[in-house]
């Protein structure tokens, strides 16, 4: 892991458009990390303290099932933000996360980010608007998947 230049952090889609001074505050609590394929970022039920901004690579969010291979709930990749369980009690990971490819990330300390958001409400607003956008998009995607659209006849009037 290594410190993160604010300019590099600012280029991540999650932070795009955030004022430089605010990005600089987040850069103080961020580290750049590279993990190889197979690396497990966290386990379901583990203590959630951090989140990641994925720069490139491929990560699976999964649920373990006794006696069976893990169930992949969703995959994330370049430009995605990973991890929200650190934000609210019980601060436990709801899923596990495993690298499906060699992956580069920015890793941020959740408590330190919250402290900076408390101290600078403008940063807090910018940060949580982005977080809400991610959460909304994931909720939307989950709802669409629940519709099981592809189970319905999809071809031209096929009967």
């Amino acid at each position: 892991m290594s410190p993160v230049p604010a300019a590099e952090l600012a280029a991540h889609p999650f932070l795009r458009g955030m004022p430089d001074g605010q990005v600089a505050q987040l850069a103080e609590v961020a580290t750049a990390a590279y993990v190889p394929v197979g690396h497990r970022f966290f386990e379901e039920g583990g203590h959630a303290r951090r989140f990641w901004l994925i720069r490139d690579g491929h990560v699976a969010l999964d649920l373990s099932v006794p006696g069976q291979p893990s169930l992949i709930v969703e995959t994330l990749g370049a430009g995605d933000m990973m991890g929200v369980s650190w934000l609210s009690p019980p601060h436990e990971w709801q899923y596990g996360a495993k690298a499906l490819e060699d992956t580069r990330t920015f890793e941020l300390d959740g408590a330190a980010v919250i402290a900076r958001c408390d101290a600078d409400p403008a940063l807090g607003y910018q940060f949580f608007v982005r977080l809400m956008t991610v959460a909304t998009r994931r909720l939307h995607s989950s709802r669409i998947r629940m519709l099981d659209l592809y189970a319905a006849p999809g071809q031209t009037g096929g009967r």
Partner: peptide, 21 residues
Amino acid sequence: VDRAEAGWRGNVGVVTQLIGK
């Protein structure tokens, strides 16, 4: 895919998520 199966190494999620990639 909406639902992964054992051994699947590809993307899991709705197709619109790929647009951003």
